[in-house]
Amino acid sequence: MVSSTDLTKIASQVRRDIIRMVNGASSGHPGGSLGATDFLVALYFAVMKPDPNKFSLDGTDEDIFFLSNGHISPAWYSVLARYGYFQPAELETFRKLDSRLQGHPSVMDGTPGVRMASGSLGQGLSVALGAAIAKKLNGDTRTVYCLVGDGELQEGQNWEALMYGAAKGVDNIIATVDFNQKQIDGPLEEVLSLGDLRAKLESFGWLVLEMNGHDMAEILDQLTFAKQQLNQGRPVIIIMHTIMGFGVDFMHDNHEWHGVPPNDEEAERALAQLEETMGDY
C-alpha cells in the first residue's frame, strides 16, 4: 500500500507538471487541475491500480475511470504519465500540433488510459453508467469511477444520468463531484446555484458521501468506504470538497485561474512552491 505521504509527494510533482504544461502550451486550465490532483493521484496509485502495460479500451477485469470535466486534462495526463501509461517527457507536447495530448482528452489519438473523449460538458456520467452496465452484463466485478465538475452539474444530461443510475440500480459505480464551487464566470453560487446539492443527489436516490479532496488519508478512507457500499442496489456519489488552484498561493480559490495559463514569471513563482519529487519531464 502506498502511504499518504508518498501520494502527497507524487501530487506535488503532478502539480509541477500541470504548471509546466499550461505554461508551455500558453493555454489550458490550471485551476481545476490543481484542485483535483490529490484525488486523481490517490485513485490511480492507491485505489484502482490498473496495469498500465495492459491498457485496452474495453478495460475488462480492471477498474476504469472516466473524466467528464475534460478541461482538467493536465492533471489527468500527468497522473497517467507518472503512473506509467506513457513517458512523462510526452507531457511537453500538451496542446501542441501532432500531440496525443489534446487540449481535451480524445480517443482517436490513441492516448493510453483514455477511453472516451470529454470536454463538452455533461456527458461523462452517462458514459460511465453505460460502461458500468457493460461490466455487469459481462460478469466483470470491477468498479467504474467518474469525476464530474460542479459547474458541469448545470448541464441537464447529468440529471438524466443521475435519475437513471438510481432508478435502474447501477450499483458498481462511484462518481465524484469536484466541488470547488468555482467556474469560469465566477463563484458557482453566483453563476447558477446548485442549491442543496447533497439533498438533490440524495433525493435522486444515490448514496451520498463527502470528503476533503486535499486530505490524502481522508480520500483513501472514503474511497475504501465507498467501495464497501457497492453492489447494494444503488450508485454512490462523493461530494469532494476541493479548492481551485490548490497548492499555488496566488491561484488558491480564485476562479480567474480556471482557464488562464501562468506566464513564465508566474510559473516560476508557482513552481517555487511545489517540491520536485519525481524529476521534472
Partner: peptide, 13 residues
C-alpha cells in the same frame, strides 16, 4: 442525451 451516453459507455466492454 443519457441514452446516447449510455450506449457509448456500453461499447466499452
Amino acid at each position: 442525451a443519457n441514452m446516447i451516453g449510455l450506449a457509448a459507455g456500453l461499447t466499452i466492454g
